[in-house]
């Protein structure tokens, strides 16, 4: 029995190797649900992850918030803070929100 292509793509994504063991033969009905790679763009946006290359300067939360505003969505979440740790700088003069400004 062969599954829908997308199921194999999930494991290829991070080279995870764990073979499938078939319990019973079964097929899926086209009337329900949607194939993850055939979603229309708006559904895709609300069901997807963006792998961002975090720029230096802003915090992870700020990056997430910008993306939320760029895509005009209600909810975003990021996978693990990747913080610049404002060492020796107080919250007020940490230059992350105004990262285009010169900081001293």
């Amino acid at each position: 029995m062969k599954f829908y292509d997308f199921i194999y793509k999930i494991d290829n994504f991070c080279y995870y190797q764990n073979p499938w063991i078939i319990k019973k033969e079964e097929s899926t009905s086209e009337n329900f649900g949607i194939y993850p790679d055939k979603r229309d763009l708006n559904t895709l946006i609300t069901n997807s992850i963006i792998n961002i290359d975090k720029p230096p300067g802003p915090t992870s939360h700020e990056v997430a918030y910008w993306i939320k505003r760029m895509l005009k969505v209600n909810k975003v979440g990021h996978g693990g803070t990747l913080e610049p740790f404002g060492v020796g700088l107080s919250q007020s003069n940490r230059c992350s929100t105004n990262w285009y400004r010169k900081c001293y």
């Binding site: 946006i45 609300t46 992850i49 997430a64 996978g79 990747l82 610049p84």
Partner: peptide, 13 residues
């Protein structure tokens, strides 16, 4: 101000 960059997966809705 250590420069910190790299993989930051962001989940939407």
């Amino acid at each position: 101000y250590p420069k910190v960059t790299g993989v930051l997966p962001i989940g939407i809705e």
